[in-house]
């Protein structure tokens, strides 16, 4: 008998995280379809190690272990990392990534609510820089499923994809990789597009991005996320490309930019992490725009084919400045 229940009570952190997990489901299924058993192994490894690291960190910080594990934020972080990693990498890479993410990016900064960098992206960026060779080997999509479970387990626990006898036949470039290679070979954009064309955008990754988009829109409908960051992120990404095309010629096509790489995952699931984004509405719009611009710049001029992780970490660095700027520009309490 609580008179306070008629106020629609806000989603608690653990409810929010459960909804995020549900929203990630379609993307996870498509990712697993494209990459086979390796994807599942990565997810399982990441989630288990994340829970262990979370428990260890709580113990070290003399906090109750159960409350921290029950808020599901560690699970979300682990799955986001697993969705960035290629299949059939040595087992210690996902473990290391979640370790850096939970212990360094999250708990060393004071736990949930105090991390200034997006934990999942810190973990991923560290292993991406440390093991570039392992992290650039993707299976041909969607034949990733043709690797049997036993082969996959063997590869993961005996040093990665290269232990398989026919590994060079199995690997293939992702859409963004292929695009990048063709651009470096000075192919015409029309030719590139025809080679990478899928049903409506770029082959394979279009379905992955579509699944993330569906999950993202569902989260928006459920009021788990606000429109500010995804809209300003995607808007700026498109605007940057349009300007580039007007002024000279952008090497990226619209379909690759929107449906290649991890665009939708970044826009709806990663950049929207409230803790490491700017705190106010206006600030979040600036933050989204900053991320979108950085994604575009790194995709076009950077050394890595995709750039979501670096763009978000760089934008995280600007958050205190964005917050200050927002307070300074729009004096709070002016009644507007």
């Amino acid at each position: 008998m609580n008179q306070f229940t008629s106020i629609q009570s806000p989603l608690s952190v653990s409810q929010t995280m459960k909804l995020v997990l549900l929203a990630l489901l379609p993307g996870t299924l498509v990712f697993t379809y494209l990459n086979g058993w390796g994807a599942i192994i990565n997810i399982v490894l990441s989630v288990i190690s994340a829970l262990i690291f979370e428990a260890v960190a709580q113990k070290l910080r003399s906090r109750t272990i159960t409350t921290a594990l029950s808020d599901f934020s560690a699970v979300v972080t682990a799955i986001l990392i697993a969705l960035c990693l290629p299949p059939l990498i040595p087992w210690w890479i996902p473990v290391l990534a979640t370790g850096f993410s939970i212990l360094l990016a999250k708990h060393a900064f004071g736990g949930i609510g105090n991390n200034i960098f997006n934990p999942a992206m810190v973990g991923y960026a560290i292993v991406l820089i440390s093991f570039p060779a392992d992290l650039s080997l993707w299976l041909q999509q969607p034949v990733g499923g043709s690797v049997s479970f036993n082969e996959a387990i063997g590869a993961v626990f005996r040093g990665g994809l290269t232990v398989l006898p026919n590994w060079d036949v199995l690997t293939g470039a992702t859409a963004l990789d292929q695009h990048r290679t063709l651009v470096l070979q000075d192919s015409a954009l029309a030719e590139i597009e025809s080679q990478t064309k899928g049903l409506f955008a770029v082959a394979n990754s279009e379905w992955l991005n579509l699944a993330y988009l569906v999950g993202g829109l569902w989260m928006f409908k459920k009021r788990v996320i606000n429109w500010h960051i995804p809209v300003s992120f995607l808007g700026t990404l498109l605007l940057a490309m349009a300007l580039h095309k007007l002024l000279s010629d952008s090497p990226l096509s619209l379909s690759v930019n929107l449906f290649g790489g991890a665009t939708m995952l970044g826009a709806f699931f990663i950049a929207t992490d409230p803790v490491s984004a700017a705190a106010s509405v206006r600030g979040r719009i600036i933050f989204g725009a900053m991320t979108g611009l950085l994604v575009y710049l790194i995709r076009v001029y950077g050394a890595y084919p995709d750039s979501i992780a670096f763009a978000i970490l760089l934008a995280n660095c600007t958050v205190p400045a964005i917050d200050r700027l927002d307070i300074w520009l729009n004096r709070p309490g002016n009644g507007q």
Binding site: P10, S12, V13, D71, G111, I112, G113, N114, N226, P274, V275, A277, A279, S280, V281, R284, D323, I327, P332, G333, N334, G335, Q336
Partner: peptide, 21 residues
């Protein structure tokens, strides 16, 4: 539990303040 800077408070503040800050 700790503030996650979600900004829900800012949206409902009738005085246009920034409660999260």
């Amino acid at each position: 539990t700790p503030c996650i800077r979600c900004g829900a408070c800012e949206e409902v503040c009738p005085e246009s303040l920034l409660p999260q800050h």
